[in-house]
Amino acid sequence: MSARRIFIAAVVAALFTLAGCSGDAGSQAATPSGPELVEKSAQAMRTVKSTAFTMETEGTPPVQVKKAAGRLNATGDADGTIQVDMAGSLLEIEFFLVGDTVHFKGVTGGFQTMSRSQLASIYDPSAILNPEKGVVQLLSNALDPKVEGEEKIDGTDAYRVSATLSQQILSTMVPGITQSVDGTLWVDKVSSRLLKADLPMNGGKVIVTFDDYDVPVQVTAPAK
């Protein structure tokens, strides 16, 4: 082989080697570490103005609220429905949380009122976006977070993260949780906002999802 061909072959081999190295470095840089990701997500959740949320159970986890769905804004006003286990029977409650007053009704009868603190003893949706209680604190205090991969959640690209989540913080959002949970979180790759949380526990699991971030939410009291 001529010296010219040897030189060309060496240059080509070097270019392929550099391309391979730069590709690996780019891939590594594109995926944040677990601690970096949950901290970035906590910061992103601090700026959320509103969201739609769902909470549902699979199996028989030891929580009183079996299902919830609604809308919430950063001031703490919310509306939606809650399905509560009352001595083995499921009771669905429609609610409108406006200021310090909750307007609610069951399957029959008209609307009644209770205080925000009374609702909080059952389920407090306003805690979700409260930066001192809810998702922000859950993410900020997540232990040993690890990025396990990438998935789509309802068509949105997300990182899947495993972490140990504080019982004390979780219980403000999901009353009845009595221990820390080794859960899974899905974080939007673009916005860093939390899309989903899977919370396994004795007897089953609780799944919480979020969407419609920053879609305006104006909650008004229902007509009597």
Score class of each variant (00 low, 15 high):
T47Q: 15
T47F: 13
V48K: 08
V48S: 06
S50N: 01
S50C: 02
T51I: 04
T51P: 06
T51W: 07
T51G: 02
A52E: 15
A52H: 14
A52R: 14
A52Q: 15
A52C: 07
F53V: 08
F53I: 08
F53K: 08
F53Q: 10
F53E: 06
F53C: 10
T54C: 12
M55V: 11
M55N: 01
M55Y: 00
E56M: 13
E56K: 14
E56Y: 10
E56C: 06
T57K: 03
T57W: 11
T57I: 03
T57V: 13
E58T: 14
E58K: 15
E58N: 15
G59P: 00
G59L: 05
T60I: 01
T60M: 09
T60Q: 14
T60V: 11
P61Q: 10
P62R: 09
P62D: 11
P62Q: 10
V63Q: 07
Q64E: 12
Q64Y: 08
Q64M: 14
V65E: 02
V65K: 00
V65L: 01
V65D: 01
K66G: 08
K66C: 04
K67A: 12
K67Q: 13
A68V: 05
A68G: 02
A68W: 07
A68I: 04
A68E: 03
A69L: 14
G70S: 09
G70F: 08
R71Y: 10
R71S: 12
N73S: 08
N73I: 05
N73T: 07
A74K: 14
T75P: 02
T75D: 15
T75K: 14
T75H: 09
T75Q: 14
T75G: 10
G76T: 05
G76F: 03
G76E: 01
G76K: 02
D77W: 07
D77C: 06
D79C: 01
D79N: 14
T81F: 11
T81S: 11
I82K: 05
I82M: 13
Q83M: 13
V84G: 00
V84K: 06
D85P: 01
D85K: 02
M86S: 08
M86G: 03
M86Q: 09
A87Q: 12
A87L: 09
G88P: 06
G88K: 10
G88E: 11
S89A: 12
S89F: 10
S89P: 00
S89G: 03
L90W: 03
L90K: 07
L90E: 09
L90P: 06
L90F: 00
L91Y: 00
E92M: 07
E92H: 01
I93H: 07
I93F: 01
E94D: 10
E94C: 00
E94N: 11
F95W: 04
F95H: 03
F96L: 05
L97V: 07
V98D: 04
V98K: 13
V98N: 06
G99R: 09
G99S: 07
G99I: 04
D100Y: 08
D100E: 15
D100H: 09
D100N: 15
T101A: 09
V102H: 03
V102W: 05
V102M: 05
H103Y: 14
F104P: 07
F104S: 11
F104W: 12
